[in-house]
Deep mutational scan, measured.
Amino acid sequence: TGIVNVSSSLNVRSSASTSSKVIGSLSGNTKVTIVGEEGAFYKIEYKGSHGYVAKEYI
């Protein structure tokens, strides 16, 4: 489990790349469930599926 550490919002992406499609966003202080790691990204549970967020903001 981690907490989103941004002042505005954090993009949730379809894969572990900054060039991948943005599938949603999370507000600061949102609790997320981390299910894996891939490079500079965490794989998280997101809306019944999975998404990826940059580690530096969790």
Rank of each mutant, 00 (worst) to 15 (best):
N29Y: 14
T33L: 10
T33F: 10
K55V: 05
N5P: 06
V22H: 05
S20M: 03
H50Y: 15
V53H: 00
V12G: 00
S19R: 11
I58S: 02
I23Y: 03
K55R: 08
S49G: 15
V12H: 00
S17Y: 06
N5L: 09
T33K: 12
H50E: 08
Y57L: 08
A16C: 05
V12K: 00
K47G: 13
S14K: 13
S15C: 11
F41M: 05
V4W: 03
S8Y: 10
V22G: 03
Y46D: 01
F41V: 02
K55W: 03
S9E: 12
N11M: 12
T33Y: 10
E56W: 06
F41Y: 11
Y46G: 00
G28K: 13
Y57S: 11
S27E: 14
Y52S: 00
Y42F: 09
V12S: 00
V22D: 04
V53M: 03
S20F: 07
G51A: 10
A40R: 09
I23P: 00
E45V: 14
A54I: 12
S15P: 01
T1I: 14
I58C: 03
L10E: 03
F41Q: 02
S19M: 13
T18Y: 14
E45G: 04
H50K: 05
A40W: 08
Y46C: 05
I44E: 01
H50T: 10
N11A: 15
G51F: 03
V6W: 05
G2I: 09
K21C: 10
T33A: 09
L26K: 01
T30R: 05
T30M: 09
G51H: 02
S17K: 07
N11D: 15
S9P: 11
K21D: 13
V22M: 06
N5Y: 04
T1E: 13
S20D: 04
E37W: 08
S17D: 13
K21T: 14
Y52T: 00
A40I: 10
T1Y: 08
K43N: 03
T18V: 13
S14M: 15
Y42S: 02
V53Q: 00
S8T: 14
F41E: 01
T1N: 10
G51V: 03
E56T: 07
S15D: 10
S25Y: 14
S14H: 11
S27N: 13
S27V: 14
V12E: 00
S14I: 14
G39H: 06
S17F: 06
E56H: 12
A40N: 14
V22F: 07
V12L: 03
Y57G: 13
G48P: 05
S8K: 13
H50C: 08
V32S: 01
T18N: 15
H50G: 04
K47R: 10
H50D: 06
G24N: 02
S8D: 15
R13S: 06
I58W: 04
K55S: 05
E37N: 06
K47Y: 11
S20T: 04
E56L: 10
K31I: 15
S17T: 09
K21E: 15
V4E: 03
T1R: 10
K47C: 14
S49L: 11
T1H: 14
A16E: 02
Y46Q: 01
G51C: 02
K47Q: 14
S15K: 11
S15W: 07
S9T: 11
S20K: 02
K55G: 02
F41R: 00
Y57I: 04
K43E: 09
S15T: 11
A40H: 11
I3L: 10
T1G: 07
S7R: 12
N11P: 15
N29K: 11
V53Y: 00
N29S: 10
N5K: 11
S8H: 15
K21P: 15
N11E: 15
A16T: 07
R13V: 09
G28A: 14
V4C: 06
I58Q: 02
I34H: 00
G24S: 03
E38R: 06
G24K: 03
N29W: 14
L26T: 02
E37Q: 09
H50V: 15
L10N: 03
R13Q: 14
A54W: 09
L26A: 02
E38Q: 08
L26Q: 02
T30P: 03
L26N: 01
T33N: 11
A54C: 12
H50N: 07
G24F: 07
V35T: 07
K31W: 14
N5C: 13
S49P: 01
I58V: 11
G24R: 02
S25N: 11
G39L: 06
Y57T: 06
A40V: 09
I34G: 00
A54M: 13
G51Y: 04
S9Q: 11
N5V: 13
T33E: 07
K47M: 15
G36S: 08
N11Y: 12
G2W: 05
A54H: 09
G39D: 08
S27I: 10
V22P: 06
N29H: 13
F41A: 02
S27W: 10
E45Q: 09
V32A: 02
A54P: 15
Y57R: 07
K47E: 14
I44N: 00
N29M: 13
I3W: 12
V32I: 09
I34Y: 02
K55Q: 06
V22K: 06
V12N: 00
K55Y: 02
K43C: 09
Y42N: 02
K31M: 14
G28D: 09
V35F: 07
Y57M: 09
G2C: 09
G48L: 06
S8A: 11
F41L: 02
Y42V: 05
F41S: 03
K55E: 01
Y46S: 01
E38C: 10
T18G: 13
V6P: 08
G39C: 07
G48K: 06
S15Q: 13
S19W: 06
L10H: 03
G51L: 01
I23N: 01
A16Y: 04
V6M: 09
G51K: 01
N5R: 13
S9N: 12
Y42G: 01
G39V: 03
A54V: 10
E37H: 08
G51N: 01
G51R: 02
V22T: 07
V12M: 03
I34E: 00
Y52V: 01
L10C: 13
G39S: 05
E38A: 08
S25F: 14
Y52M: 01
S19V: 10
V35S: 04
V6T: 14
K47N: 14
G24Q: 02
F41N: 02
A40F: 10
V35E: 04
V6L: 09
V4A: 05
V4H: 05
L26P: 00
V22A: 06
G28E: 09
G28R: 14
S15A: 14
S15G: 13
V6A: 12
Y52W: 12
K31G: 06
E37F: 06
S9L: 11
R13N: 09
A54N: 10
S15H: 14
V53D: 00
S19Y: 07
Y42P: 01
I34T: 02
L26R: 01
K43P: 01
I23D: 01
E38S: 09
E38T: 08
S8M: 11
F41W: 12
V53T: 02
G39P: 02
V4G: 05
K21H: 11
I34P: 01
S14W: 08
S9W: 10
K47I: 07
T1S: 13
S27G: 11
E38H: 08
N5W: 05
G48C: 08
G51S: 02
V12C: 02
T33V: 14
L26W: 02
K21S: 10
E56G: 07
G28F: 14
V53G: 01
S17E: 08
I44A: 00
N29F: 14
G36L: 04
V4T: 08
G36W: 04
I3D: 04
V12W: 01
E45F: 08
I3M: 10
K21Y: 08
S7W: 06
N5M: 11
V35R: 05
S17H: 11
S25D: 07
Y46L: 03
G36P: 00
G28W: 11
G39K: 06
G28P: 15
T1Q: 13
G36C: 07
N5E: 07
I44W: 00
L10R: 04
Y46I: 04
A40L: 13
G28L: 12
S49T: 12
L10I: 15
I34C: 03
N29V: 07
S19E: 13
R13F: 15
